[in-house]
Amino acid sequence: MPESPRRPLPHDFHPPVASFTVVSDDVRDGETLSDAQVQAAGNTSPQLSWSGFPAETRSFAVTCFDPDAPTGSGFWHWVLFDIPASVTSLPTGAGGGDMAGLPAGAVHARNDYGSRDFGGAAPPPGDGPHRYVFTVYAVDSEKLGANADSSPAVVGFMLRFHAIGRAQLIGEYENPAAG
């Protein structure tokens, strides 16, 4: 099977906004994801911490997107928003779906697996390396205006108009061809 082409990132088509910093104890920018972030192994959302966001931030959103998925539209692995502006980190496993480790008011929308949680990396065997873009958005309002039944596209639409800052961390993962 030929290697998937490198596709644009979801926010490449959004207006420029301020950048800030996101770091993780679990994901290293440009490096291979650990088994913990792979669906068939740990399926655990990574720890994330952010700083340097705009002073006028009223809430945050966190997403994980695979632009290299062979779908024509990428694949959303995690869609979380309405995180209070006072929260600047999420612990490992906060995206588990039971809302443990998440602040009151945070909302999980359905990912492309159809569940309201973090869904780990699962590229098709032999499809080449995929990028997993963890993005933290600084938002200009306490509530984004989406809800738990909103699609990732609707959340992305709302972020296009309400993001005032953005930080990203990109891990990679490849599922080798069998045999």
Rank of each mutant, 00 (worst) to 15 (best):
S19D: 13
F161K: 08
F13Y: 02
A178E: 12
F134M: 06
A106V: 12
S59Q: 06
L144K: 01
F75I: 00
L102H: 01
M99W: 06
S19N: 08
P15Q: 15
D98V: 04
T135N: 01
G96H: 03
S115N: 14
G97Y: 07
P70V: 11
A177Y: 11
V22Y: 08
A153D: 15
P10F: 15
T21I: 11
R28V: 14
D25T: 14
Q47S: 15
F118Q: 08
T57A: 05
A121E: 06
E56A: 15
A106K: 08
F13D: 10
F81N: 01
V22W: 10
E56R: 14
E172S: 11
V136N: 01
A177D: 11
R131C: 04
P54M: 13
A148P: 01
G114M: 13
S73V: 11
D112F: 07
F53Y: 15
V136D: 03
D66T: 11
H77C: 13
G126P: 07
D82W: 05
S73E: 12
S115M: 05
P91H: 10
I83Y: 00
M99Q: 07
S59N: 05
V22H: 05
Y132C: 09
Y113K: 06
Q168F: 12
A41M: 12
G120T: 06
V154W: 04
G97E: 09
F118T: 10
A148N: 06
L33W: 09
G156I: 00
T57W: 02
I170K: 06
F81A: 04
D12W: 14
D29F: 05
M99R: 14
R110E: 10
A41P: 00
A36E: 14
G156W: 07
Y132M: 13
D149Q: 15
V133M: 04
P152Q: 12
S89G: 11
R116I: 02
T63H: 13
A146Q: 07
A69Y: 14
Y132H: 09
N147F: 01
L33I: 11
D112T: 04
Y173R: 03
P103E: 15
D117T: 03
S59P: 02
A85L: 05
H14C: 13
P84K: 04
A104V: 12
S51N: 10
R6I: 15
A148S: 15
F118M: 13
H108P: 00
A40T: 12
P84W: 06
A122K: 04
Y113M: 13
W76C: 13
S4K: 02
F60T: 10
P5W: 01
T88H: 10
S151Q: 05
E172I: 06
P70W: 00
D112C: 09
V17S: 03
F13M: 03
T32D: 15
R28S: 11
R6V: 15
P84E: 07
A109Q: 06
N111R: 04
A100C: 01
T88N: 13
Y137K: 01
H162A: 10
A121L: 11
V87S: 03
R58D: 01
Y132I: 09
G101K: 06
I83H: 00
T32G: 01
F157D: 13
A94F: 10
Q168W: 10
S19A: 14
A163W: 00
